[in-house]
Amino acid sequence: MKTPKIVLLTFFLSASFLGMDSINAQGCVAIRHFSSCVGNTLESNLLGEGDIQIGSNYRYFKSFRHFRGTHEEPDRVSNETEVINHSHSWDFFLTYGITDRLYTSITIPTVINTRSSLYEHGREERNTTYSRGLADIRVGVGYWLFDLEKHQNGNLALGLGIKLPTGNFNASDIFYNVGPEGGPETRPVDQSIQPGDGGFGVTVDFQFYQKIADKLFAYGGGFYLINPRETNGTRTFRETLSPLLENEAIMAVPDQFSVRAGASYAISNTISTSLGARYEGVPVKDLIGGNEGFRRPGNVLSIDPGIAFVKNNFSLNLNVPFAVRRDRPQSVTDLETQELTGEPRAGDAAFADYLINVGVSYRFSNKKVKVAPELMGEFKS
């Protein structure tokens, strides 16, 4: 088989990224950690029959800048009332080439999250809650639409996957100054740092590449996570902040999405760079199922530079997307309360300035199939 020049896209979501003027509802990150079900590095889906790719992707962000709509509230940082989330996640994946065009993959994610806030601890002192452990496992298949040997300068792959509710969606910790007589009380941690969401999901994704010039390729792709389950039964305790938040007492199981596009260029036989844009988030309403329960819809547009090192069957890559536009639109519960009270309501949410994605992978080749260096190491989630 001739050397196919192919780019692979993997998609995320980060964080469960993401209350209202008069009721002082608080924000948190809007986009949870997530990626598509078929691979964590660009070259993972370019496999010969019987090839195996294993690897891991690490992702970190700190969310702390509060937004209502696209308007930032800088006073939250200056007066030290901001909510601060630190999110660490590791995706461990294995991809297998069923044929030269058909592949399957499993991703096992783990997370360690912290959340520092005032309002969750009686507004008297800042305290931190934690969560950690296995997140929601994903399994998927993908297929390149065109013969890889005959279409080395461009191709398109479609994928379908399943998200399993393996992560804890009722992780708990100690909250201070909110229990009986103002003492501590064990409660579920905020939705944004729950390891799982409690729902079976389906992902649909696509990825494409196109050669532009020698050593220069355009890439693109995205995924959408369909979560049919409406709520997962986990209590938020938001109704204890105000009776008007009764409709946000139980956590929702929201959809997520991500889209990426850009260009990659091979500097040498082992090093390539990329520059693109990504748009990702949690929608206000799901494609399938109801929209009740508490969610923080939000979306982020980022500029996404990256660099990759590839040597033989080993690859290492780094991407640091930084946000250029953040938006926390009105949620369904925001609009319900607005109609009930006749007063404007727009919830806030905290977003990160940037993400850090580091991926490493190794290929066990059944055949001698070499991948063009400029196509490898892209599309970290």
Score class of each variant (00 low, 15 high):
42 L>F: 08
140 G>C: 08
186 T>C: 07
174 I>A: 07
191 Q>C: 07
229 R>P: 08
131 S>A: 07
186 T>R: 12
305 P>M: 02
138 R>G: 12
310 V>A: 10
163 K>R: 13
176 Y>R: 14
236 T>D: 13
179 G>S: 12
379 F>T: 15
233 G>R: 06
151 H>R: 11
82 E>C: 11
245 L>Y: 10
115 R>V: 03
258 S>H: 14
235 R>G: 01
3 T>A: 15
158 L>S: 01
135 A>F: 06
26 Q>L: 13
212 I>D: 04
23 I>E: 04
345 R>Y: 10
24 N>H: 09
300 V>D: 02
319 N>D: 11
99 T>N: 08
248 E>P: 00
89 S>C: 01
325 R>Y: 13
158 L>Q: 00
289 G>N: 08
115 R>K: 15
240 T>G: 05
223 F>W: 08
115 R>M: 15
101 R>L: 10
177 N>P: 07
85 N>K: 04
107 T>A: 10
153 N>P: 03
30 A>W: 05
225 L>T: 14
217 F>G: 02
107 T>S: 15
348 D>S: 15
54 I>Q: 01
91 D>C: 09
342 G>D: 05
203 T>Q: 12
347 G>M: 02
300 V>E: 11
63 S>M: 07
368 K>L: 06
20 M>H: 11
215 K>M: 09
140 G>E: 05
24 N>K: 07
375 L>K: 08
58 Y>C: 01
251 M>L: 10
69 G>Q: 14
9 L>P: 06
341 T>C: 13
130 Y>F: 13
359 G>T: 03
24 N>M: 06
215 K>L: 12
280 E>L: 12
356 I>H: 00
19 G>W: 07
166 T>M: 11
232 N>Y: 05
216 L>V: 10
238 R>Y: 11
236 T>L: 07
161 G>K: 01
203 T>W: 00
337 T>F: 04
90 W>R: 02
235 R>D: 14
268 S>Q: 05
284 V>E: 02
205 D>K: 05
228 P>Q: 12
365 S>N: 04
127 N>I: 03
55 G>P: 00
259 V>C: 03
106 I>V: 15
365 S>I: 00
214 D>S: 15
357 N>R: 09
194 Q>D: 08
113 N>E: 03
226 I>S: 13
296 R>C: 03
290 G>M: 14
1 M>Y: 10
107 T>K: 12
65 R>Y: 13
265 Y>A: 07
348 D>P: 11
302 S>R: 15
32 R>D: 07
328 R>L: 05
355 L>G: 00
107 T>M: 14
96 Y>K: 05
78 S>G: 11
272 S>K: 02
46 L>F: 09
64 F>H: 15
163 K>Q: 15
336 E>F: 09
81 T>E: 11
119 Y>P: 08
319 N>F: 03
336 E>L: 05
196 G>C: 10
281 G>I: 01
361 S>L: 00
264 S>W: 04
14 S>M: 03
254 P>I: 07
